[in-house]
Design a protein around this nucleic acid. Structure first.
Lengths: 207, 207
DNA sequence: TTCTATTTTGACCGAATGGTCAGAAAGGGG
DNA sequence: CCCCTTTCTGACCATTCGGTCAAAATAGAA
């Protein structure tokens, strides 16, 4: 059967096909959102017939839910790495760089997340108000401590984090606009962004 | 008839109904994107029957196109106001503030734009590579001139503009996330953002 | 009040969509 | 090669979707 989200594939074919389906679904969901995506679209992208796809996943929701679950699992890893030990400036600019690398290497995941939030995050609201908020609270406390110790400037840690999210994810979510505006400089946009953002946050944080 | 986009309403009823339709469509398109939105949804939100809505607009595309046209017309106004005369720092932080006010007062317009870009901007690509790029190029030249004159720091004007767009629009497009993470501080998020972003860009631009 | 132009509705249509199912076609261990 | 399991397909179904149309209801100027 392989129904019920094919929780984790067993046979060779199951691994291949579920992988292809998730890959295809990520592409389509990231572009058109949940409601704007059709099963036929995903199936075509994955090179399967619709009934064949539905042999591996019970429904469109099931695919989307699995993608979101996998995403949320790794989405916050870069932030988790930021620790109180070590140089504050290095920790924060390191986080910025890791986040920018994620925008470069996993733009579809970034767009999937953006789409979900734009729709009001109906399926992941509890993940945001739970684990995500908790993590941000704990890291905000670290940043506040650094400020109190005079090791970085005195700034609002929450809005600092928002501005890191915004500036880095922008290069994934708004890539079309960024590339068109940059014209022939578009091919080096991530190197330029890396340098620009490092400078930006260094200046912001300097005590 | 009132067909063909009802270019500009004549009768009292036409003004009321086309206004209600566009208002409702903005709400729904901004949340679900073009393909994720149904005519019935817009009609219900506007308090009309579907055939009645289609009496005022030829198609779903027609409504969406008119919304985007109106949006693009005013979307870049805050940037246009930035001029070479006047204090560079005031000009740029003023732009940041105006952009943030737009995020606060017109979040649906911001989300509509975000949705369109996420989908690859299929309907407004020529607007972006044309007027938008031209405007950005001209303002980037002004910023570069300010840098050359030593009146602000030497930074990449394009990525500066991107970071302004990203940080301000974030408060509209990701409002759900921002509000949840801020918790009981959410009600003052725009005042706090205004202060934070002013500080941020002031530090970045100081020579 | 009358009369016409405007507005609204219900009934309808073809296509698309999410999903099912019985059976045919492979896979692959023994 | 056999035989059971896994995989795949075409045909089908109910619902939703975008959109049409003729006719009924309503505005509102004269």
């Amino acid at each position: 059967m392989a129904r019920a989200a094919a929780s984790r594939a067993k046979t060779r074919i199951q691994k291949e096909k579920t992988g292809a389906i998730l890959e295809a679904a990520l592409e389509v969901f990231a572009t058109y959102g949940f409601r704007g995506t059709t099963i036929d679209q995903i199936a075509a992208q994955a090179g399967l017939s619709k009934p064949n796809l539905l042999y591996y996943f019970d429904s469109k929701e099931a695919i989307h839910a699995l993608l979101l679950e996998d995403l949320l699992d790794t989405w916050l890893d870069p932030l988790r790495e930021m620790e109180h030990d070590g140089d504050p400036l290095d920790e924060i600019t390191g986080y910025v760089i890791r986040k920018l690398e994620m925008a470069r290497d996993f733009p579809r995941e970034s767009r999937l997340f953006a789409n979900e939030i734009l729709q009001g995050a109906p399926r992941i609201l509890d993940q945001i108000s739970g684990p995500l908020k908790d993590l941000v609270d704990s890291k905000a406390a670290i940043i506040r401590a650094w400020s109190a110790e005079g090791r970085i400037a005195d700034i609002d840690p929450y809005h600092l984090i928002f501005s890191i999210w915004a500036t880095t994810q922008h290069y994934a979510d708004f890539d079309v606009q960024v590339s068109v505006v940059l014209g022939d400089k578009a091919d080096t946009r991530f190197e330029a962004a890396s340098q620009y953002l490092t400078t930006l946050f260094t200046k912001v944080l300097r005590p």
